[in-house]
């Protein structure tokens, strides 16, 4: 009985809302959320009578300094369908780069198509690169669309919070470099995982046991990573070096491996230890 009563009450509410479409549309202008979605009430509406669109996202999820990530902006169209919906973004934050999906290249549209139906909620995505040392980023968003046969354009502002990176920059991803015979040199390898958003100019040097001869690719004074000389957060890459162990007796040994890199333009390094085997 209670469930039935509640159901009837909800049905009545639905009837009431359906009778007042103007109220439902205007309601999007006063919604406030204490979380990441905030409407400060400063939206520019092209006019409830003509339609317009509402940007629901005024503050995106945070991007860690030094990182590149995609963020989503949520939209709703009022009263009439908004077709050919496009969004471009600009910023004055130094070093911040905004880019778009490859299929649209110079703008972003909605995830499934370029139409925001009246009352529909959908999002556009932007790729944002935030250099180290950035503060919160302000994006100036320009949305264009066609609604009720008229071309529309509206400007909005979105904030991207920037989080500071804390913790270790890099971690040893393996403990064993491989084995080498006393009679033949062999390429051994060590793995590292980036933890900071971006580490650049990675160079690796190996300090082996007395009697082991280390040679680096292209006869350089160091080796670097296989894929390139940088590490992004969560990326694991491998570095290789040639070991000549002809002067060593068979057994277990270890290397000290130093990884140097730059982060936010500053040089830094860390040292790891890797085991290897010399076989007879």
């Amino acid at each position: 009985m209670m469930k039935k009563a509640i159901t009837v009450l909800m049905a009545a509410s639905l009837l009431a809302l359906s009778a007042m479409p103007a109220l439902a549309a205007e309601d999007t202008g006063t919604i406030t959320d204490t979380g990441t979605i905030t409407d400060t009430g400063s939206m520019v509406d092209s006019g409830a009578a003509r339609g317009g669109v509402t940007l629901r996202t005024r503050r995106t999820a945070a991007i860690v300094e030094g990182d590149t990530a995609w963020v989503a902006l949520s939209w709703t169209a009022a009263r009439a369908d908004a077709t050919d919906f496009k969004v471009v973004a600009q910023t004055r934050s130094p070093g911040v780069i905004v880019s778009y999906p490859t299929n649209t290249d110079s703008y972003s549209s909605l995830m499934d198509n370029n139409t925001l139906s009246a009352g529909e909620i959908d999002f556009t995505s932007l790729r944002v690169s935030v250099p180290y040392g950035s503060r919160n980023v302000r994006l100036s968003i320009t949305a264009t669309w066609t609604q009720s046969g008229q071309s529309q354009k509206q400007a909005f502002t979105v904030t991207i919070p920037v989080a500071r990176f804390t913790g270790n920059d890099i971690a040893q991803a393996s403990k064993y470099a491989g084995s080498v015979s006393v009679s033949d040199p062999a390429w051994l390898e060590v793995e590292w995982t980036g933890l900071a958003p971006l580490l650049s100019d990675v160079e690796i040097t190996v300090n082996g046991p007395r009697g082991a001869t280390i040679t680096y690719p292209a006869d350089r004074a160091f080796t670097s990573l296989y894929y390139n000389n940088s590490l992004e957060d969560g990326e694991t890459d491998v570095a290789r070096f040639l070991v000549d162990a002809t002067s060593l007796a068979p057994g277990s040994y270890s290397f000290k491996v130093e990884v140097s890199y730059t982060k936010a333009g500053k040089a830094s390094s860390t040292i790891g230890e890797f085991a290897f085997e010399v076989t007879g």
Binding site: T36, S74, P101, I121, G234
Partner: peptide, 14 residues
């Protein structure tokens, strides 16, 4: 539609 705004993604595949 709510949660997608509350997180970032490494790429559109993610």
């Amino acid at each position: 539609q709510c949660d997608v705004q509350r997180q970032t993604f490494d790429d559109l595949g993610a």
